[in-house]
Simulated scan of single mutants.
Amino acid sequence: MSKISKRPTIRMPTTEEDKAITAAAKSDPDAQPLTPKQLKAMVPIRALRGRPKSENKKLLVSVRYSPEVVAYFKSTGEGWQSRMDGVLRKYVTRHSRSA
């Protein structure tokens, strides 16, 4: 374990230092402050990552199927889980209408 367990102290700039930093940043043409319109258009990076949210969320469950059923669907190639879901959805549709 490290002998230094304290986090470093953060020292905030004084008002004069802050003004000098702001003036230097504003004088740089490549580092101009964002306009209110640009700030309003910003989105958290978390919202942009990953797959878009589906309107039809699926549930994560653990199910055991017969080996021959899994082997058949796997033999149909990529997307076999989606095809299996489609077959089950058709079954539900057919059987819920006749009930």
Results as ranks from 00 to 15, higher is better:
M1F: 04
M1D: 04
S2K: 09
S2G: 06
S2T: 08
K3M: 07
K3N: 08
K3T: 09
K3Q: 05
S5R: 10
K6R: 10
K6M: 05
R7Q: 03
R7E: 03
P8Y: 06
P8G: 04
T9Y: 12
I10Q: 11
R11N: 08
R11V: 10
R11Y: 10
M12T: 12
T14D: 08
T14K: 01
T14F: 04
T15D: 14
T15Y: 11
T15Q: 14
E16V: 07
D18E: 13
D18Q: 09
K19V: 09
I21F: 15
I21E: 13
I21C: 07
T22H: 09
A23E: 13
A24D: 06
A25C: 06
A25N: 12
A25M: 11
D28S: 11
P29I: 10
A31E: 09
A31N: 15
A31T: 14
Q32Y: 11
P33E: 05
T35H: 02
T35F: 03
P36H: 06
P36A: 10
P36R: 11
K37W: 11
K37S: 09
K37M: 12
Q38I: 02
L39V: 08
K40I: 01
K40H: 03
K40R: 04
M42W: 05
M42C: 03
M42R: 09
P44I: 03
P44D: 09
I45Q: 04
I45H: 08
R46P: 00
A47Q: 14
A47C: 05
L48S: 05
L48G: 09
L48I: 06
L48Q: 13
R49P: 00
G50V: 06
G50S: 06
K53M: 05
K53C: 02
S54V: 03
S54E: 11
S54P: 04
E55A: 08
E55P: 06
E55Y: 15
E55D: 11
N56Y: 14
N56F: 10
N56W: 12
N56L: 12
K58T: 15
L59R: 06
L59K: 07
L60C: 05
V61G: 01
S62C: 12
V63K: 08
V63T: 13
R64C: 02
S66L: 02
S66E: 07
P67H: 09
V69I: 13
V70K: 00
V70A: 01
V70T: 10
A71L: 04
Y72N: 01
F73M: 05
F73P: 00
K74V: 01
K74L: 07
K74Y: 07
K74F: 04
S75W: 08
S75M: 03
S75T: 07
T76R: 12
T76K: 15
T76Y: 01
G77W: 03
G77K: 02
G77L: 04
E78Y: 05
G79W: 03
G79T: 02
W80I: 00
W80V: 00
S82W: 02
M84T: 01
D85H: 09
V87W: 15
R89Q: 11
R89G: 02
R89D: 07
K90W: 13
Y91P: 01
V92F: 15
T93I: 14
R94F: 08
S96V: 13
S96T: 13
R97D: 09
R97H: 11
S98L: 15
